[in-house]
Amino acid sequence: MLWHKAWRETRGRFITGLLILTVLSAAKVYEYVVAQRMMPMAESVLSGAEKTPLGDAIRDAIAVQREFRGFIWYNSFRDNLTQLGVLFAVLLGCGGLLAEAKKGSALFTLSLPVTRKQLLGARVGIGLAQCFALAMVPPLVIPLLAPVVGQSFSIIDALVHGLCLFFVGALFFSLASFLSTMFGDIWRPMLIAIVIACGAVAVQLVLPELGLFRLMSGETYFRTGALPWMGFLATAVLASALLYSAAETLERRDF
């Protein structure tokens, strides 16, 4: 029943996120058609431009988006799904026992014959399952809808990108869960997690190898077809450490 309670407490956020991400993902498929019509115009404008790093970057971006696979990667995986994915992962991780304490029902929960680890475990279990759904479903609508616009998209690609979204999403979920064992309100964990996310962006600009969002967008796989095993491993280890810390922090907490 703890799982059911965790579900009830997060289902609003989850369903909202699932709808938004899925609709955006589907919308991008249709946007391809529109974008294609504008493509020749963009190319002609740029063909005469100088060779500068910025100019090169823009040319590269346009080149990537000429194909359907590239367009989807550039606009969905690299953009929408990554940014909103992080947001919803953090949202799902917020709440929990401390938030309950602010509202008053924590004492009832704590008086039940369950350990704090069990309570956290139920929330984390539901949360990770939700992160998985949020990561997998939006990519999987792409191979489904691609034929409608006369394109095709590999299911394997969708699955791999889904995994990339999941691993990094799970990391942010774990971060928010950990922060939620330290602060009772919803806002502080969210704010701190987002600040850290911005920090990760900064790190990525300086050290592309440690690019968390490159991992999330599956850039390496997109460009080279190689699965980012190290990235998966690193995020899994980090997420586990955060969840372990969350459990320990919760254990010591006085209510």
Partner: peptide, 19 residues
């Protein structure tokens, strides 16, 4: 935690799950 299977508790706030 197990001993609480034999214990009932009513808090002073009597707050339960609102939803």
């Amino acid at each position: 935690a197990e001993v609480r299977r034999r214990v009932g508790f009513v808090s002073d706030e009597k707050d339960l799950y609102d939803y």
